[in-house]
Amino acid sequence: MRTVIFRTFAPFITALMVLFSIFVLLRGHNEPGGGFIGGLIAASALAIYGISAGVGPARRALKAHPMSIAAFGLLLAALSGLLSLFTRQAFMTSQWVTIDFLGVAVDLSTPMFFDIGVYLVVVGAIGSIALALEERESD
């Protein structure tokens, strides 16, 4: 699999896929997309990088262990539901805040953070499985 063409293009493809996965994640609230599908795209990007550059460099590029990323995602999702405690509403009641960012009104919400949590869980879990499988193959 490690042809020159693939090795040269893989980093660009990976970067593009990660960017696209974040785009899919953020448009997910009202349009097709969301954390799960975005996470799958990002995990595929990770898998492609792992195939072209080897599992070791892929793990180093990721900095944190994939399982820790998944755990952090789950934590973020759980905490996003907790914010409604302070508005005296039930767990998981969505909270919205609109901020003015350089003249554009940006809606931030707890469902978005929940979705980012889902994204990280999927990236971490699927990425962990993919890297583990690639590792076995090269032995």
Partner: peptide
């Protein structure tokens, strides 16, 4: 709901 939240938070911190 706290039993589920507490154990998820504790579980993820232990995993990290």
């Amino acid at each position: 709901i706290a039993p589920s939240i507490l154990t998820i938070i504790g579980g993820t911190l232990c995993l990290i």
